[in-house]
């Protein structure tokens, strides 16, 4: 049985797609057959971040409409074995995703994958709801600021009430917190919420903290999931996230201010 992981947040621009790409690539690199699905119909960019936008022929909506089968639409990643991408449609309207269609696609993917990572669109409307509905796990991506935390809180409410597991009275969706774009120096100045603040408000398990890093933009410009940039802080932070998700113990890093010359040299 495949495990379905939704990457969600409520708010846009917090790092869901960055996280989806890194997390899926990390799972595949650890030897798990992984599919990553872009639910952001109309605003697809997972394929860009994964560097496969030129290989898109068919998309998620084509499969739902029966215009292509799953095998035709799935793009096999060239760098990472066992990783495939189901791109969103660029043009269609949001109602193109139907409940039955999504269910059928996820069931199809479950046949030959260990993990299915669902990259949710922003908001709490239909697309976001469909992305989370079938989930077993949720990665809740939050920036350390009040409005992002509030939106994540809202999403946590939906995860505990508007998902298949909630509706059928099964074990709840397992919720994991990922704080992204973290800048310890700004926390120190009181401009950003601290890891503790966010954890206190949301009170769910902290899977990892991703520092604000120029490596993220560089990686996405070159179409490489940042986790594959092993020398970078963000890449290492995502590596920790995947390892913790898979059950390893890892100390949290990148959460304290870098001090002195040594810190400055390694900044960014």
């Amino acid at each position: 049985m495949a495990r379905i992981v939704v990457v969600t947040s409520g708010k846009g621009g917090v790092g869901k797609t960055t996280t989806s790409a890194a997390f899926a690539a990390g799972l595949a690199r650890a030897g798990h057959r992984t599919a990553v699905v872009d639910f952001d119909v109309g605003l697809r960019n997972l394929d860009l971040i994964m560097g496969c936008e030129r290989r898109v022929v068919y998309d998620f909506v084509n499969v739902i409409n029966g215009e292509a089968n799953l095998n035709q639409a799935l793009i096999r990643d060239k760098r990472t074995q066992g990783l495939s991408i189901l791109p969103a449609s660029q043009t269609r309207d949001k109602d193109a995703l139907t409940f039955e269609g999504v269910q059928a696609v996820l069931e199809g993917l479950a046949e030959d994958h260990d993990y299915i990572v669902c990259d949710s669109p922003a908001g709490i409307e239909r697309g976001a709801h469909l992305a989370m509905y079938f989930a077993d796990d949720a990665l809740v991506v939050t920036n350390p600021e009040v409005s992002s935390v509030r939106d994540s809180d809202r999403v946590l409410g939906l995860l505990s009430s508007k998902t298949r597991r909630a509706e059928q009275g099964e074990d709840p969706v397992q919720e994991h917190l990922i704080i992204t774009r973290y800048v310890p120096e700004r926390v120190g100045k009181g401009e950003m919420l601290s890891v503790e603040d966010v954890g206190e408000i949301l009170s769910i398990d902290l899977l990892g903290v991703i520092p604000e890093s120029s490596a993220v933009l560089n990686a996405s410009n070159s179409g490489v999931p940042v986790i594959l940039e092993e020398q970078t802080d963000a890449g290492q932070a995502y590596d920790d996230v995947v390892a913790r998700y898979l059950g390893q113990q890892r100390e949290h890093r990148f959460i304290t201010e870098k001090k002195g010359l040594f810190g400055r040299l390694f900044k960014g």
Partner: peptide, 27 residues
Amino acid sequence: TTPVRSGQQIYARGGDLVITAAVSAGA
């Protein structure tokens, strides 16, 4: 026994309400 999240509403009609978790802003 679970957190009451932003946007959620709970009403104990006709009696008392005990919550063993947090009540979020917006709840």
